[in-house]
Design a protein around this nucleic acid. Structure first.
Length: 1036
RNA sequence: GGGCCUAUAGCUCAGCUGGUUAGAGCGCACGCCUGAUAAGCGUGAGGUCAGUAGUUCAAGUCUACUUAGGCCCA
């Protein structure tokens, strides 16, 4: 016996039970262990930061990350998935700063790095419990007991190994990096911090005259930051833009042609035209003498770069390599020198004439000075949005800092090659957003002037020697003062010195820690402490078969993984990646706490259940598109899909229990099955094939839609059409067939859907399968994924049934337009279709539509007429612009006559203004139009016509069906059991009484009546209006 | 400011290489069914395919620009 199935849709309670069942019986572990020795399928989990709470977007990432490995596990692979935690980085430090009431680096150092770092380490686990509960509730299977943790000594040691390897390849170097910098706080800001502080400000910009060397002419160059002019070393033009040499008043200028009028007014004459490229390497005289003699490299000439635009200014840009990222990059490209006449407090230095003056205060002084020297052309006001420090509101400056880089530009070709090996889903991201970006890859600035992170493993000596340490044992071997239990963090490591192999002095570690993206990108090997341990395991699990994260990770984790794997192994780190869109609110707005539109994930999970939410994300739309999330949308899928599945399962259990049907005692005997059964099995196996192919190719939405369609067909066609077979008293072969077919469909389906909706499928499995088969696997998730049985797939059968469904649908529409309800039998229906169905299918149509006789015919002329229009795809190219006239003429043709002509001659001649035009059968589309005496409907190539005139006999039959229906309703309303015998009374209407008398035997049989009496009532009675006739019916 | 993505019915989404009646589900209205019934089925109304201009015999689909939202980078 099956456990009785609650028809309530209380999914969350049942999910909790399954969650506990998995927990108690180690189902996840078993799902991996039972595949020992099988091919590996590797999934890498991108580590979340545990000091942030899970949000609804994590539900999407987790359900995608979970589903693919579950599927691959059922396909027979050993699918190891290690969970991970991202624990380093600025967000953690900021969180701790806030909680300690600290503000800025000075205060942190006053507080002490050691206690600060200790707090960081603790803070990381603030929401660990919440994450674990969250993961359990959504059904996310990953090894949470042995996660990788990026702050772990072993993890850091692996990262060190990687850095040393890169160092030894000569790809790790020290250089300048332009960073947004707060001169008051003395610290660079992260892009996230910068974004918080943009403000619109109005400032003076400067258009400055740079004297061309050896020519009585000037370059007009523009800058929004006059304080950078003393540090000027070059000018830059766009090589593709047109520049002009013009005469204005007494001066000769160079500037962009497009901006000449805007800058100079109308009164000037053009002397010559150049492209930007023509101006390259043209020299000019330094604006200020400060840098002259201090730099050895050749400077003070024109450079070319695409970043210069003609949107503002003059098309010529002044360059100071210390104060702009583009400036630094272009000057680096041209091997120009470097000066930085601003100190760390944001004041100009003693090399200039404005020593000690803050840059923003120096702006007007410099403008004044230039004006006096006659070098200032103009100083227009300029409004733009400029970043300010979010802490102290000081305007930020872009400022060069000493920084460590990985020379990604050196491995660019390999990066591109490796990226091309990745299967990006969708492909456009791999080609576009990601591919374009790595085409122009820049060196990776990996150092951070912070405290809580993997320390950069470079030691420096006064003699200039640098050494990279690659392991703890190497450190200990080279150091006299390394504690035995050294923790690889600041400040502990800052005190460890090593002996310089060159000069014998003590070497000190550089103060920087590294970008935490390097940590997470190192996870393929660092999670296994490779190469110090688990060499085999790493090699077997690299690269990953599959990863998935949201689109914001393109330049984050997706990049750091492939960057590091290219540097170390020259391979991509992953083979397949699903890029996910962000989850937005119901209006397509970004969710955020401040807007108050953020959905709390645990609350949503509690309300709808995990399966419903999982299903929403799978089915709703392509994973890479932004998902709008709100409650109603989730409920829809729950009712339609989960509810229907559950109902179908409940139906099976209800009757199987009544009949004490046990599937293990029977066999599915294909030869004896009805067409309906064979149809369902054909659909089922088509579905298996489809799901297998699509999930193997990471096509999520397509799979979900196919599963949903199948459940709909199973419930609303197979079960509905087959219900009566379950009602019979005896266990006939046909009844066994119905049970076995439905059982097979259900028990197979839950395996197909198990990766997506793991809870409900296991709930059903426990009752449906484990209850019947003693040797069944413990959980649906330990089963093998179903294999398609091609012999059950009968495409013709599916095609025929599809036509049945179309005809039925049209028939119902025709009934509706004719206003004849279903209980009223109809005598005749004609059908025109591309192919003809046999009697079995016709019987289904007849039964479903309550029609006596269904016939196929091509000759529908009696019931309808034809209309013609061009088959545009075929005729369009042939007829060209005549096509609209042809369309008009076709619309006026006599349908029957034209059809005749087409049938007899195979062509159709139409007369146009320009002469005759002969159309072939392929050129026109023939459709049917309305009629008289029949109700017709057509769709695609199928047309139906039902006879709307009803004979007295049919009307009588209609009455009989009505009476039966009312009596059945009364049986139920009055609590009779299905098997109870009743007495029936009919009173108060002669017409009905006589019809009932004439059909007494039939009615008695169906409603299980022992007698029918007219003219009196007894027992439960009720007045009914049957097709306009009032009558009292009673039963006892 | 730059790059990329998105915009189709009240809501959530389909719509293949351009082919003329733009589909589905939900919601709504009406009806049907009634031994899965706090279920099921059907029909209908709802669309200037974000806007503007262009290419074409033909544009939701191609091009350019604009608007709104998103992601990344300045």
């Amino acid at each position: 016996m099956y456990k009785k199935v609650e028809t309530s849709l209380n999914f969350t309670q049942r999910e909790k039970e399954i969650e506990e069942f998995w927990q108690e019986n180690n189902i996840f572990k078993k799902s991996i262990d039972q595949r020992e020795g099988k091919d590996m399928f590797t999934f890498y989990d991108g580590p979340p930061t545990a000091n942030g709470k899970p949000h609804i977007g994590h539900v999407l990432t987790r359900v995608i990350k979970d589903m693919i490995p579950r599927f691959q596990a059922m396909k027979g692979h050993k699918t190891v998935r290690k969970a991970g935690w991202d624990t380093h980085g600025l967000p953690v430090e900021l969180e701790v700063e806030k909680s300690l009431g600290l503000n800025g680096k000075d205060q942190i150092e006053k507080y002490g790095i050691e206690p600060f770092v200790k707090k960081c380490k603790e803070s990381v686990w603030k929401y660990k419990g919440m994450w674990e509960e969250f993961s359990r509730t959504v059904g996310y299977w990953a090894d949470m007991d042995n996660p990788y943790v990026t702050y772990d000594n072993k993890y850091i040691e692996s990262v060190w190994w990687a850095l040393k390897t890169i160092w030894e390849k000569g790809l790790l170097y020290e250089g300048h990096k332009i960073v947004p910098y707060c001169p008051r706080c003395g610290t660079p800001l992260s892009s996230h911090e910068v974004a918080q502080g943009y403000k619109d400000v109005k400032e003076r910009s400067a258009i400055v005259r740079f004297k061309v060397k050896g020519e009585d002419a000037y370059f007009l160059a523009w800058t929004t930051t006059p304080w950078t002019l003393p540090s000027n070393l070059a000018l830059c033009v766009n090589p593709k833009v047109t520049y002009v040499k013009v005469k204005k008043d007494d001066y000769t200028y160079y500037l962009a042609e497009a901006l000449a009028e805007k800058v100079l007014g109308e009164d000037f004459s053009v002397l010559a035209k150049f492209t930007g490229k023509d101006l390259e390497y043209k020299e000019y005289e330094p604006l200020y003498p400060f840098a002259v003699g201090k730099i050895k490299k050749k400077s003070f000439y024109v450079t070319c770069d695409d970043y210069v635009t003609t949107a503002d200014g003059t098309g010529i840009v002044h360059m100071a390599p210390a104060f702009g990222e583009d400036d630094a990059r272009v000057c680096h490209k041209y091997d120009i020198g470097f000066v930085q006449f601003v100190d760390a407090k944001g004041c100009l230095t003693k090399e200039t004439d404005w020593e000690g003056i803050f840059v923003k205060k120096a702006d007007p002084l410099i403008l004044k000075d230039l004006k006096e020297k006659g070098l200032l052309f103009d100083a227009p006001s300029f409004e733009h949005s400029y970043p300010h420090c979010w802490r102290c509101d000081t305007p930020l400056i872009y400022y060069a800092r000493e920084s460590w880089f990985i020379k990604m530009t050196a491995v660019r070709e390999n990066l591109i090659k490796n990226n091309n090996m990745v299967n990006w889903i969708p492909p456009t991201i791999g080609k576009g957003r990601f591919g374009d970006w790595i085409e122009h890859v820049q060196d990776w600035g990996i150092s951070r002037n912070r405290y809580w992170g993997t320390p950069l493993n470079i030691w420096e000596c006064k003699c200039g020697h640098q050494h990279s340490i690659g392991s703890i044992s190497e450190l200990k071997a080279m150091s006299d003062n390394c504690p035995d239990d050294i923790e690889l963090h600041r400040p502990f490591l800052d005190n460890v010195t090593i002996k310089c192999p060159k000069c014998g002095e003590q070497m000190h570690r550089v103060p920087e820690v590294i970008d935490c993206w390097f940590d997470s990108g190192a996870m393929p090997f660092a999670q296994w402490h490779y190469p110090f341990e688990n060499k085999d395991l790493f090699e077997k699990t690299f690269p990953a078969d599959f990863i998935s994260e949201a689109v914001d990770q393109t330049r984050g984790w997706f990049y750091s993984l492939i960057a590091i794997s290219t540097l170390l192994f020259n391979k991509p780190a992953y083979k397949n990646v699903i890029v996910l869109g962000h989850v937005q609110d119901k209006n397509g707005q970004k969710m955020s706490k401040s807007k108050g539109n953020a959905v709390e994930p645990m609350a949503a999970l509690k309300k709808h259940g995990a399966d419903a939410i999982r299903w929403y994300f799978y089915e709703n739309s392509a994973p890479w598109l932004p998902n709008r999330f709100h409650d109603d949308a989730v409920q829809e899928g729950q009712r339609k899909f989960l509810g229907t599945l559950w109902n179908t399962y409940a139906f099976y259990v209800l009757y199987a229990n009544i009949d004490k049907f046990v599937p293990s005692e029977h066999k599915l005997d294909y030869a004896t099955l009805s067409v309906m059964d064979k149809w369902l099995l054909s659909r089922l196996n088509t579905l298996i094939k489809f799901v297998d192919e699509n999930l193997s190719a990471y096509r999520v939405t397509e799979t979900a839609k196919a599963l949903q369609d199948f459940v709909d067909e199973l419930s609303n066609w197979y079960v509905r059409r087959s219900r009566e077979r379950f009602w019979g008293k005896d266990m006939t072969q046909d009844k066994v067939n119905a049970y076995m077919t439905l059982y097979t469909a259900l028990s197979t389906f839950i395996k197909l859907a198990a990766p997506m909706i793991p809870f409900i499928t296991d709930t059903i499995y426990q009752n449906l399968v484990r209850n019947s088969y003693a040797d069944a696997k413990e959980s649906v998730h330990l089963c093998d994924f179903p294999k398609v049985n091609e012999t059950y797939i009968d495409k013709d059968l599916e095609k025929n049934m599809q036509l049945v469904l179309e005809i039925v649908s049209l028939g119902r529409a025709a009934r509706n337009t004719a206003n004849i309800k279903n209980r009223q039998p109809i005598g005749q229906m004609f059908v025109k279709a591309p192919f003809i169905l046999n009697d079995f299918y016709k019987a289904i149509v007849a039964d479903e539509l309550n029609i006596k006789c269904v016939d196929f015919t091509d000759d529908m002329e009696k019931y309808l007429s034809y209309s013609f229009k061009p088959q545009f795809k075929v005729l369009g190219p042939k007829a060209g612009r005549q096509i609209n006239e042809i369309k008009k003429v076709l619309a006026t043709l006599n349908g029957h006559a034209a059809k005749d002509e087409l049938d007899k001659t195979g062509t159709l001649k139409v007369t146009l203004a320009s002469g005759d035009f002969t159309l072939t059968r392929e050129d026109v589309e023939v459709s049917v139009t309305q009629t008289a005496g029949f109700a017709t409907e057509s769709y695609n190539k199928v047309t139906v016509a039902i006879a709307t005139t009803l004979s007295p006999k049919l009307i009588e039959e209609g009455f009989v069906r009505e009476v039966i229906s009312k009596i059945q309703t009364m049986r139920k309303e009055n609590g009779f059991e299905v098997t109870d015998r009743i007495k029936v009374y009919v009173n108060g209407n002669e017409k009905i009484a006589s019809i009932v008398k004439d059909n007494c035997a039939e009615i008695q049989k169906i409603v299980l009546a022992t007698s029918i009496e007219t003219g009196k009532t007894d027992g439960f009675s009720k007045e009914w209006n049957i097709n306009g006739e009032k009558v009292i019916l009673a039963i006892k």
